[in-house]
Structures are given as C-alpha cells and as structure tokens.
Amino acid sequence: MSATTAPTRPIGAQLVRVTTPAALVILFVIFAVVSPTFRTPGNILHILVNNFSLPALVALGMTLVVSAGGIDLSVGVAADIAAMLAVTLMQNGTGLGLSLIAGIGGALLVGLLDALLITVFGISPFLATLGVLFIGESVQQLATNGGTPIYLVSNYPAAGLDFLAHGQILGLPLPLWLVAAAVVLTQLLLSGTAFGRHLRAIGAEPRVAWYSGVPVRRATWLVYLLSALLCGVAGLLLSATVKSYVPLSGNAFMLDAIGAVFVGTTISRETRPNVLGTLLGVFFFGMLHNGLLLIGWNFYWQQVAIGLLVFIVLGISFLTRRLQTTD
C-alpha cells in the first residue's frame, strides 16, 4: 500500500518527479531558441534578480508554513506593512537602518497576529490568515487615504537604499545573497534539525504530534514569524527597488508563492514541500513571465499561457501519481 516504503520503486514514480524540471528545461530551450535575448547571461541574471528573488523569499517562508500543515494568505500584508512603515519613516527623515528595522518589526507583528490567532484562538490557518489579510488591507487603505502610493523624496540620501536594491557582493546582487541565506535557513530547519521533523509531524497529523510531545505551539509561532520575516525582507527590497510604497502591491506574491510551493511538492518522493522544489517552482513562474514577454506575447496571453502550463504540469504529475497508487 505504501509506495514510500516499497524497496523497489516503480519507474513511473521517478517520472512524476521529473515532470516539473522537464517542463522547465523544455520551456527554457524553446525560449532560448526563439529569442536570442532570452539566452544572454544578462537576461538570466535579470530573471534571477527581478522575477525570482522576491517571490523566492516569500515562497520559502510559505514552504515552512505548508510543511507544518498550514497556509499563509497574509504574506502580502507582511510585505506591504514592512514597506509602508519603512518608506513612511524614511520620508520623514528617519535613518535608513532604523526605518528598515521598523519595517521588519511591522512584518513580524503580522506574523505574531497570525500565530496568536492560530495557537491561542484555535482558528484554522486559512481563516486566520485570511482575516489578517482583510484587516491588513483596511489598515493600508486607512493609512494611505484609500491607496495613494508614497514616493520617496528625491533628495533622500539613497546610497544605502540603492545598495539594497542593486548592490553587489562578490559580483552577486544583494537580493540573491538574501535568497541564498533564506535557502540555507529553511533547508536547515526542514531537514537537518529536530525542528524539521517536528514540522513534518505537525503537517501530517497535528493531534498525534501533540500527543507525542511535539511542541506544536512553539513550532507554529516560529513558522509564521519566519514567514513574516522573509516577506518583510521581500517588501523592503521591493520598495528599495521602486523607491516607493504602493499599497496592496504585496498581494501579487500570495498566489504565486502558494503555486510555487505546491508545484515544488511534485518533485518530492513524499509530495512534501521542499526547498529545491519551491525554488524550481518560483523560477518556473519567473522564467515564464520573462520568456513569454521576450517572444512577444502580450500580457493578457501570458496569463492564459501561465495558467495553462501550470494546469498541465499539475495534471501530469497528479495523474501519474494517482495511476501508481491505484495499481
């Protein structure tokens, strides 16, 4: 019955796991052949910095949350609140460091509220974070008079801000270093530690985990706080790049992050959220946006195409999995 413990694994099982990577490689080759611009190193770096790094930070946090059997619909709020606080403070002349710390603090408050609602009030993660999303939207609307963007004044001493958005360390842009740090953090938490095993236990059967002495509450707090932290970093990077705060702009992260995490589960033998899969998922989406644009599809058709491709990838991997398990 249990395919995961069978000593010899059917060849089909291996095939499912390559669906996403294969689709990624095939599309990469197609884009590279059709568009000479696409295959330039400069463009690949462009994808990594502009289409990949910010969603990757959010999706890595989501990977932790989903591993623990939860879901976080408030990722956009955490990113937006961080940007809102930091940009507002900077505009009023506060130093860069303090503004950024305040932004991260704001994001952590969102995570704190999520965790509080889930652990203390016993609300399911979906509803708790949905409620926080609604509240967060109101807070932003009230603070910005209905959604007016805040632009940083041009004479703001922006050297540090520019470094945040475009700075390079050892030739690699700072956002990618932050993604690398987040990858190390999430990978360590998920695989190398007792905490990772606890998360998976909670994700599989929270009640059993609780009865077995797993510190369910502590793990839940940590997961939502970490998710909010990563979202806050993403929000700050975004506002550093566009030198402004646009209310409710973080919501675009939410569905992409959820999609990337679950597309990523298709490469895991146990269909669990995993860091590599999530990164592949995020890159898949980022590459599609960039590639479809470069081969000349307009924005409207891009959206149809992305939906269709995700549909096909999910369809193939879930169908193959189903065919194996009903054998």
Partner: peptide, 13 residues
C-alpha cells in the same frame, strides 16, 4: 486549491 488556482489564471487571462 491548486487546480482552481490554475483555472483562475486561465479565466483571468
């Protein structure tokens, strides 16, 4: 959750 998310994108597009 995933199937209808993908379909949402297709319909929106």
């Amino acid at each position: 959750l995933l199937a209808t998310l993908a379909v949402m994108n297709i319909c929106g597009g």
